[in-house]
Design a protein around this nucleic acid. Structure first.
Length: 152
DNA sequence: GCCAACGTTGGC
DNA sequence: GCCAACGTTGGC
């Protein structure tokens, strides 16, 4: 089983939105590196729900991959913000995975704290700040979960 | 709002 | 295939 970190701007889709919906398609990914990581995701993998461009940004909780790589319909919808007129219908460029809400951290883990922890200094989050979907090592996973679950 | 990092596009 | 110009992400 693998661990991931997936970013969303809470203004458009937050962990509370996912908590309400229970499951949702992680659509709108328009970056090849991020897409390729999604392609390798398996049912049962776990992911951190990361709030980006937020105040503050950080890890908000956990979700589970419950549906593997499939076509993202928003790429074909001209009214959608993520419409991609260059994506051929026969070979769609973009895909999504389906995620299920698992938990919202009692203690939100802001990026400022992540940066302060030596065990997390090699996180992809800090090295490749613009990558919206990225792998997380088991050690990093345990560390972040411990931070998120501690009572404030 | 600024700006660094970096992905994408398009001319050659 | 190179690379300059441009656009986007995302922290601050």
């Amino acid at each position: 089983m693998a661990y991931w970190l997936m970013k969303s701007e809470p203004e458009s889709y937050s962990i509370d939105d996912l908590a309400r919906q229970k499951t949702g398609g992680w659509d709108g990914v328009r970056n090849y590196a991020a897409r390729n990581f999604m392609k390798t995701m398996k049912k049962g993998d776990l992911a951190l729900f990361y709030h980006s461009s937020a105040d503050p940004s950080g890890a908000a909780g956990v979700m589970e991959i419950v549906g593997e790589y499939s076509t993202d319909p928003t790429q074909f919808d001209p009214k959608n913000h993520h419409y991609d007129p260059r994506s051929p219908a026969a070979q769609p460029r973009w895909a999504l995975v389906t995620v299920r809400f698992v938990e919202k951290f009692p203690s939100f883990v802001p990026i400022g704290e992540i940066k302060r922890v030596p065990a997390l200094k090699n996180m992809a989050l800090l090295k490749y700040s613009r990558l919206s979907i990225q792998p997380v090592t088991p050690q990093e996973w345990e560390t972040i979960l411990a931070m998120g679950r501690k009572k404030s």
